[in-house]
Amino acid sequence: MLTDASNIPFALELKSTSFSVPVLVITTDDMDVIEQKLHDKVNQAPEFFKNSPLILDLQEANNQGCLINFIELAGLVRQVGLFPIGIRGGNEQQNKQALQLQIPVHTVSGRDQPLEEKKQKSPSLESEPNEAVISNIAPSETTLITHPIRSGQRIYAKGDLIVLTQVSAGAEIIAEGNIHVYNTLRGRALAGVQGDVEARIFCFDLQAELISIAGNYKISEDLGDSVKGKPVQIYLQDQALIIKDIELHH
């Protein structure tokens, strides 16, 4: 059979998507220590780390003046069964070495800095490999809506969502980050839908059918009269939704 590429209408298509990839933050240049720690980590959750892709973050190490040979480090990571798929925060020479190994060079985005800081401050998190090493490498995005969101409409925001107009009953606004509604919120609002427990909902006039943060929700019936129709912020504390008035100073 003849295969002429021009006769196949949809042979391929380029699409953009974002993934959550673990980032390994290095803070020492002692390869033996790195190897030991890596083995410990992988042994804690072998299934989770099996053939896992990994981005190597050398910024902290370089800031501390550590001298790391990237080729050596990448080899070590491969030895424990992980696949390095990128480097970030590397110096010129490390980036060059990465490209030699055909590993792409990423820039450091500002968003996950706090997560890394938290990791260093609280060594107790070391026992939870997921939280300690995973950080989202997608840059933060904000979606701004200036037209009314009517019944039956659905808005999904990758990052934060800011709505300047009313959200009608029967409408649904969903964000991976925070939700701000500078108007009446009558529909459903779901913040932190990818599990961000730090996400919050802010609105000028709470009349929502449902509010949810990271899967913890309350329906309209559960909203007390003390908060209905008021400017409020909603956040998660010990897995409970807290609804608090926002004092407006006139």
């Binding site: 009314p148 009517r150 019944s151 039956g152 409409q153 009608s168 029967g170």
Partner: peptide
């Protein structure tokens, strides 16, 4: 009123 609201959403999208 709710059905009208829904229709307004469709007009806008």
């Amino acid at each position: 009123v709710r059905d009208s609201d829904r229709m307004l959403g469709l007009l806008a999208s």
